[in-house]
């Protein structure tokens, strides 16, 4: 694979707690299982968490700051995933702050990772709009904005979309996370179309993730839901990975699938 084909995608949200890290882990694993060579960068320096989502927390020796400051080689710091051999994580430093890696260093780091032949480099951006955001987005060429169908999260997403534009990351992808189809049906929760209408046409809807207990249990185990069949959220994340790779995948009909029998159908009827 030519190094020019590497896609560098930053996953942002503005507001914390909307599911950036979970999303990064799930998309990363899904892409890797589809044969892509994936590098995940935890850019949330000081608040390391992506290692937990991936179950790699016990294998960290060096981190991103060690690489930037020359104490470790990139290959020493990148942790290969156990199940998904195509997936590697560059963990955040836990004892430093967000100023430890500047935009120029981030760009340099991404060039180094690119040279290793990865096809996807996915960066988990810290919450907020300050320096950490600017550092994390510095080397990216595409952006995904994660939001929940909830007012403050959509508001912050709008702010982030403006800031991404200022960094020349135009037309970001949108993921609506933690959707509760029943509440949308009773008009108690913003629908995906509402979120899209409010944010405007410059965002491209990439996926809809239903609220799913599987996300909690899979995070507890350190095995992203997208790695295994059988959950709606996992399938939604796999669909996102396929869309990123250019496939046309219809959005899941969450309403129809919320019953027990259709869920069974989902368990046994997965084709791809």
């Amino acid at each position: 694979m030519s190094e020019n084909n590497t896609r560098v995608i930053v996953i942002t949200s503005g507001k914390g707690g909307v599911g950036k890290t979970t999303t990064t882990a799930n998309i990363g694993v899904a892409l890797a299982n589809m044969g892509e060579k994936v590098a995940l960068i935890d850019a949330d320096i000081g608040l390391r968490n992506l290692d937990l989502a991936l179950g790699l927390e016990n294998r960290i020796v060096y981190d991103i700051v060690d690489v930037v400051e020359g104490r470790a080689k990139l290959r020493q710091a990148m942790i290969k995933h156990k199940q998904s051999q195509n997936l590697a994580l560059l963990p955040a430093a836990q004892t430093r702050d967000k100023s430890a890696v500047n935009p120029a260093q981030m760009r340099q780091l991404i060039e180094e990772i690119r040279a290793e032949g990865y096809t996807y480099i996915i960066i988990d951006c810290p919450a907020g709009i300050e320096q950490g955001f600017r550092n994390a987005t510095a080397g990216a060429t595409e952006a995904i904005v994660v939001t929940n169908p909830e007012m403050s999260s959509v508001r912050d997403a709008d702010r982030i979309i403006g800031l991404l534009e200022a960094q020349d990351l135009r037309n970001p992808y949108l993921i609506v996370n933690r959707l509760r189809p029943k509440m949308v049906k009773s008009q108690d929760m913003l629908a995906v179309e509402d979120v899209q209408e409010v944010l405007g046409s410059n965002v491209k809807l990439l996926g809809i993730i239903p609220e799913d207990e599987v996300i909690i249990t899979s995070t507890n185990k350190g095995e992203p839901a997208s790695a295994t069949e059988g959950s709606l959220a996992g399938q939604a994340y796999r669909n996102i990975a396929r869309r990123l790779r250019g496939e046309e995948v219809p959005f899941l009909d969450l309403e129809e699938r919320s019953g027990f029998f259709t869920r069974l159908k989902g368990l046994f009827g997965n084709k791809k």
Binding site: G162, M189, L190, A191, V198
Partner: peptide
């Protein structure tokens, strides 16, 4: 008015200010 509708109109207003 349904809560989703209230949320949408409130959001539209606040984003107008923000932007």
């Amino acid at each position: 008015e349904k809560p989703a509708h209230t949320a949408k109109s409130r959001l539209k207003l606040v984003l107008m200010h923000d932007r």
